[in-house]
């Protein structure tokens, strides 16, 4: 079960996924609680024009910079658009998503390698991750975890009780921008290696699954990280076995996502049991006081 990962590119793919597991576990908890699924999905699409422009301007080196600029720009625009509540969050998110992605497609559609560019953006190239990309991801991971660690309490307060947080003097817009930028950085860190499909899944499914298993925050983040590690390892293994032993071309990104979703489906029945147990316990206490 370890043998395929002694092949260098498989080892690098697993390392990249492990790094992403480390950041996506905690970040997905906030994405879940703040209901930012759509924002995450939007960010994966809106970095696309950044990737294209970055590549056209500076080649492979330019991609990360381009994605970074586009991601942070989207985070700012989305925060500002949804601030006043003039447009509903989801409509403005959809419009920004479609517009930015279209810019990317218009730019890329003039190139000859149009379709393969698009599909590599969707699926990423997890099996061709270079050591340099791993280093980039690691650096971004440190930045992301630091940003999350310093603001975790304030973000939690804002998420649980926006009116209370604002009454205590916290600036809601600033906190929203902070979290949107964190999500944007995760997308930038991950999108080139693992593709949009997998990034969206990594930001949404782990916490949704973990919430079915526990009602506590730290365990939620840990379970999320564990799930990504498990699904990443198994997904790579399955796609390796499928293509080496059976000649079936199974995309690694798809395999990892489908395993994550499988974990979610398997966790669904647990929720009821976990919920019932705690409810009974608390109702006894209610009788007492």
């Amino acid at each position: 079960m370890i043998e395929p990962f002694t092949v260098p590119f498989m080892g690098r793919a697993l390392t990249e996924l492990a790094l992403l597991a480390l950041i996506c576990g905690p970040v997905s908890v906030f994405v879940f609680l703040r209901r930012l699924s759509f924002v995450s999905d939007a960010l994966t699409h809106t970095v696309f024009p950044g990737v294209v422009i970055g590549f056209l301007a500076g080649g492979l080196e330019g991609i990360v910079v381009g994605a970074l600029v586009a991601g942070v720009l989207t985070a700012v625009v989305l925060t500002l658009l949804t601030r006043g509540g003039a447009l509903s969050d989801d409509a403005s998110t959809a419009v920004v998503l479609a517009a930015m992605f279209s810019i990317g497609v218009v730019l890329v559609s003039r190139r000859k390698s149009y379709t393969s560019d698009l599909s590599s953006f969707l699926f990423g190239r997890i099996l061709t991750v270079t050591t340099q990309q791993i280093v980039e991801t690691a650096v971004l991971a440190v930045v992301i975890l630091a940003m999350l660690a310093v603001a975790a309490r304030a973000l939690l307060f804002r998420t649980f009780d926006p009116a209370g947080a604002s009454a205590a003097g916290f600036r809601i817009v600033a906190l929203d921008l902070w979290l949107n930028i964190i999500v944007a950085l995760v997308v930038v860190a991950a999108v080139r290696a693992v593709g949009t499909i997998l990034v969206v899944a990594l930001l949404i499914v782990p916490a949704a699954t973990a919430r079915l298993l526990t009602g506590r925050l730290v365990p939620m983040a840990l379970i999320g990280t564990g799930l990504i590690l498990g699904a990443g390892y198994l997904g790579l293994l399955v796609s390796w076995t499928a293509s080496v032993d059976y000649g079936i071309s199974l995309t690694s990104a798809s395999a990892v996502v489908l395993l994550l979703v499988l974990a979610y489906v398997l966790a669904l029945p647990f929720r009821r049991r976990h919920q019932k147990a705690t409810t009974t316990r608390s109702s006894v206490h209610e009788l007492v006081g």
Partner: peptide, 23 residues
């Protein structure tokens, strides 16, 4: 407030000590 929010009573009370300055 969302009753499904995964947070303990103690954590809620601790929020009263969070300060916007020095957050």
């Amino acid at each position: 407030l969302d009753p499904d929010f995964p947070i303990s009573a103690g954590q809620v009370v601790l929020m009263g000590r969070y300060r916007p300055r020095g957050w």
